[in-house]
């Protein structure tokens, strides 16, 4: 019996965004990465194109992070050297790209100067040849002073820079506009703000509308993940049905969110009912990432090399054609 396969007819698709730049385009990357372009719901190859596989980044900090001790064996030798750290992430752990988090710029931590931040980014760019993303320390006043020096120092590299928020998107957007970088537009688990922020950024310069990455804020497994999941499903449905202001590739930091939670960190001694800590943490992170792949994420930031490995295996599987 031939079953009549049900395929959705969509009016539109997700826009493609290129990350990084090679020599020809004024950068120094060995290759670029294209994300987005989907004309179907996640991995339903039978009804449309999934032209670009989602990519997975690992995160490099400019200060020694206070992470779970289980990370010591992977990153302990490079915690003090962002360049070596980035290199290890790419060469040993297989990261598709690197996200530099300039946590040290935080005035309450190391208060690194804008020049220091730019130097860190340059160091990472020299150490690896993959595209690079750069995130500030999270304190808007300080971050607004570092975007321009970084954007200028890395002019031509087509960085991904963030984050722009509804109350504070102009500084990072202008820095990206002036130096041809891509901006991350972050909204607080709120699809209306997500859309409005994209509109505001596109209004600053129409050219930026194809250089936006949506960060809808990805909650961790067990901590509101279903809210983010549904928002991303709605945004992706909107994009496919022609809502251009939601038709940007999506980004989320599954590593950061997951490893903030008790379930990833608490030892088996303290919580024997939950089993061994490290594997639990890896799976807390990887399951979080898995859910976001199913709701349409294009760029994942991970932390544990084993979680990255498991999720890249899952992406390999999901990218196999399932046309009827």
């Amino acid at each position: 019996m031939a079953v009549e396969i049900l395929k959705e007819k969509y009016r539109s698709k997700v826009g493609e965004v290129v990350l990084g730049a090679t020599k020809e385009d004024g950068g120094t990357r060995s290759h670029t990465i294209t994300v987005g372009g989907e004309s179907a719901l996640p991995y339903l190859h039978f009804e449309g194109e999934i032209p670009n596989r989602p990519v997975v980044a690992l995160e490099v900090w400019d200060i020694v992070p206070e992470w779970n001790p289980c990370f010591e064996q992977y990153y302990g030798d490079v915690y003090n050297d962002p360049g070596a750290w980035a290199k290890k992430c790419v060469e040993e752990y297989g990261a598709d790209l690197i996200q530099v988090r300039l946590k040290g710029a935080d005035p309450d931590l190391k208060d690194h100067s804008p020049e220091d931040c730019a130097a860190t980014v340059k160091k990472v760019l020299e150490a690896v040849s993959v595209p690079v993303m750069v995130i500030g320390c999270g304190k808007a006043d300080k971050d607004n002073t570092i975007y321009n020096p970084i954007a200028e120092a890395a002019a031509g590299e087509n960085l991904v820079m963030g984050v722009g928020e509804l109350e504070n998107y102009k500084a990072v957007t202008s820095a990206c506009m002036a130096n041809n970088h891509v901006v991350i537009a972050q909204s607080p688990i709120d699809i209306n703000i997500c859309k409005q922020l994209n509109i505001l950024i596109a209004e600053m310069s129409p050219a930026m509308s194809t250089r936006i990455i949506i960060d809808p804020t990805v909650a961790a497994l067990g901590y509101g993940i279903e809210y983010s999941y549904s928002i991303m499903e709605r945004a992706r449905n909107g994009a496919l049905q022609g809502d251009k202001m939601l038709a940007m590739p999506m980004y989320g930091n599954a590593g950061f969110e997951s490893w903030r939670q008790k379930e990833a960190n608490i030892s088996a001694d303290e919580q024997p009912g939950w089993g061994e800590q490290e594997e639990r943490g890896i799976l807390w992170e990887a399951t979080t990432a898995m859910a976001y792949l199913q709701s349409g994420i294009d760029i994942l930031v991970m932390r544990h090399p084993e979680a990255l490995k498991a999720i890249k295996g899952n992406i390999d599987d999901l990218m196999k054609n399932n046309s009827y």
Partner: peptide, 15 residues
């Protein structure tokens, strides 16, 4: 039918 945002009238016209 459309996802709300503050600029919803402009977005509708600019589709």
């Amino acid at each position: 039918m459309d996802i709300y945002c503050d600029s919803f009238v402009d977005v509708f016209k600019q589709r």
